[in-house]
Computed example of a mutant assay.
Amino acid sequence: MQDLASVRRLEALGFRAWPAASIQYDGSWQVRLTAGHPSKRLNSVNPLDPSDHRDIEKRVERTAQRFRAYGRPLVFRQSPLAPPQLDAYFDAHGWRRFDETRVMTAEIGHLDLDAVLDHLPIREIGRYVDASIQVHGRDRALKPGLTEVLSSIRPEAGFFVIEEAGSGPVATVLCVHDNDMAGIFELATRSDSRRKGHAREVVTTALRWARMRGAEKAWLQVEADNVAAVSLYESVGFRETYRYDYRQAPETADGD
């Protein structure tokens, strides 16, 4: 049986670590919207109570109106906290299910981090954003929105970049230290520099940094079909805690 208390804590950590510009509530449904960035985590409805399933049709329409006002497609992010009746409603109306994601955790004290090379996080958000966009191969038009999101993070954030002389950044990751927890986000390795150990190096470096600041447990989110990333995280010591996915009406298309 799913440990909903653990799910609630990890969901709350995720919201703090990846803050949306606008947060509203419809009952226990958290409506997150961000005009400057298309991330689904920043632009989705997040039901947070399995027992809150009243007036589903009316509430879905209300949230659809909010998303239309933002120019965003309506997306529901369905974790174990979402009521089963809501999924049944989506099934009955032909809403598709996509981008299943695994939430994984690890006890930092059980990880082998002593031989990890120390890399200090960089201080300039703009420099990290430039490196992240380059390594991910993303559109540079996302820079203002990503900078705004990262600047809004309230817990301590470590921005890590692995660089090679002559070729620039090859791997990036964001580590958010929140009390005894450390969240790993936005891991990427440049396409021409994969399978060289850069991803493991930058992740373990970030975890070592978090451990030195008192973090005891690490967590992350990774798409279930990203076999290479899941394999990397499992080899480091992460194990699955729960999954979530997204639901969307058949007449709309998901963004990035």
Rank of each mutant, 00 (worst) to 15 (best):
R59Y: 01
Q221N: 15
R54W: 09
R9L: 15
L232W: 09
L48D: 02
A20S: 10
F160L: 03
R239E: 15
W29T: 15
L142N: 03
A171T: 05
S44D: 05
L33C: 13
A17I: 09
Q85E: 05
K196G: 08
L142W: 05
I184G: 04
W209T: 07
K143Y: 03
Q221F: 09
P121S: 02
R195N: 15
V203F: 01
A165I: 00
P50K: 05
S193A: 07
E186P: 03
S235Q: 12
D118T: 15
E148A: 08
S6W: 01
V202K: 00
G137M: 04
L4W: 09
E57R: 00
V149D: 08
I133Y: 03
V227A: 15
A182S: 04
D180F: 00
I108F: 12
E124S: 14
I133K: 01
W29H: 05
L113R: 06
P50C: 05
G126H: 03
P144L: 10
R208I: 01
Q78L: 11
Q30I: 14
D91W: 10
R97L: 03
T204L: 02
T101C: 08
R62A: 13
A249N: 07
E11G: 11
R66W: 08
N46F: 12
A228S: 11
V203Q: 00
R9G: 07
D225L: 14
R195T: 10
R96P: 12
S6R: 09
L142P: 11
P38Y: 09
A17Y: 01
E156G: 00
K40A: 00
L4P: 13
H93C: 11
T101R: 00
G36F: 11
Y128H: 08
S22W: 05
R66G: 08
P121A: 09
A35W: 03
W209Q: 08
A17G: 01
A188Y: 02
L146C: 02
D245A: 04
I122N: 06
T204C: 08
T147I: 10
F185G: 10
A12T: 15
Y244L: 06
T172C: 04
A82L: 07
Y246G: 00
A215G: 15
R138D: 10
I23Q: 11
I56R: 02
S51A: 15
R8E: 14
R41S: 06
D91T: 12
P121M: 11
G183N: 04
A88P: 08
E156D: 04
G158F: 06
A17V: 12
S44I: 15
E164I: 15
L42I: 10
E163G: 06
R68I: 13
Q2R: 09
A21Y: 10
G145V: 05
S193W: 10
N43P: 01
V7W: 01
V202F: 07
G237A: 07
